[in-house]
Amino acid sequence: MAFPQLTGQMIAFMLISLVVIGSAVAMLFTRRVIYMALMIGGVFIGVAGIYVLLNADFIGMAQVLIYAGAITILMLFAIMLTHHGHQEQTPVNGHTIFSVVAAGGLLGLLYWGFNTVDWAKWQSMSPKTDAPEWGTSSVKAVANSIYTQYTIPFELVSVILIVALVGAVILARKEEN
């Protein structure tokens, strides 16, 4: 595996990845829900950084506004308004060991697999241009796709939202007697 060139972008990517992976792992190991919610906020912000690095500014901003902002705060409120006991440490048993081995195996397989891929060829297949066909504004590009080619899925998403909203109300409302 060729060592990656240390450009500014590469360093930024590595730092952001550290934040994302670190927050995700920390989230799994904390025992208090409130810390988990904070940690997942870290993951969301980190992912937003990756979007920005990939020149998808609009998605990056949307990620910060919706996920890092709204959803994390919503989760924090939900946690604060409900009662939570302290979670006990789960004991290590056969199931835990099996999961660790399986997840580790998958990680190893993916690491090996991604190393066998000829990424130089990938680059040559879709070269990075300074003037992409959709112009420099990613907002325009997103809007164009949503309102021309992807109108049908866009409309269907609104049905999903209604279903999710109704579901949340049904599952959360008090039993009527």
């Binding site: 899925p153 999903i160 279903v163 579901g167 599952l171």
Partner: peptide, 30 residues
């Protein structure tokens, strides 16, 4: 939508619509 779509994004949205609705239907008995 899952049966008639020829596009990965649309198929995925169909799948989600079916899934989310069925999660709720399964858990409806309070």
């Amino acid at each position: 939508v899952m049966a008639s779509s020829l596009d990965l994004i649309t198929i995925f949205i169909g799948l989600e619509l079916l899934s989310i609705a069925s999660y709720i239907l399964v858990g409806m008995r309070r």
